[in-house]
Amino acid sequence: MKVFQTIIAVVLGALLIYAEADFPAWASSKSPANAGELSQYYIKNIYDETLVPNMVTAVLADYRGYDTLFETVVVFTAGLAIFAILGTGVMREKKTAVPAPKRIYSEPPFDLIVRISTRMLVPVIQLFALYVLAHGHHSPGGGFQGGVILAASFIMLELSSDLRAEAAKLTHRMSIWLGIIGIVIYAGWGTLSLFFGGHFLDYDMLQALFPLDPLMARSHSMLIVEVGVAFTVSSIMLLIFRQLVSGGYSIPDKQA
């Protein structure tokens, strides 16, 4: 059986390499992906239309804003799915091969050096995460990167001290609420422009709210939308970590 699988994989690889003879050379400017109209338009016109120097953030949050909204929803749904699978840890099946542990947690050993150094590092990491989020316009960065680094700072805090005590400070309910707030910020900002006569996620129309020209309105709206993305990504990554590391037992039975 294994030989059969290996043969299938090798044959597939050989066919793909044979088909690659028709590819254009790597890194040529004349390949259809690089010489096509769409990418030429983006490279030439992004600064004139949005006043944002970072091309990737502009395309992500403005030109392809609809895609990014639903990527955020997908991340949130994955968090909900993990919550549904691992849940509160109490399982309804009668027979489990590995019995549920009686004592869920032993207190982690108190290690002074780890705790003190984590306490010193975590504010710096969070400041850096907010910096990455806010400077997405001018340097590589944005909502996704900032959100993940923010989640990493909380994960570090929970790794170095008692998980249950930290989970009581930032509860599961709060994590899910923060995830929802992120999506509401994003979709709400898009809906706001419907009230001024524009399309959904059309940031031009918001010049009626603030006294700005349409280009600056787009630039600022991108920042607000990235803040929404960062809320959702950071809280959901933290939720996934908690559920995975405790096997679902990080919340008491009576609290949902």
């Binding site: 990527e71 994955a78 993990i82 691992l86 099946e93 489990t96 590995v98 990504v233 096997g247 679902g248």
Partner: peptide, 20 residues
Amino acid sequence: VVGVATLGVGLSLIQRVYRI
């Protein structure tokens, strides 16, 4: 980013399978 979210879902399924 979506890939790591689905990685999390897959790993939670593995934990559940292990417990049963």
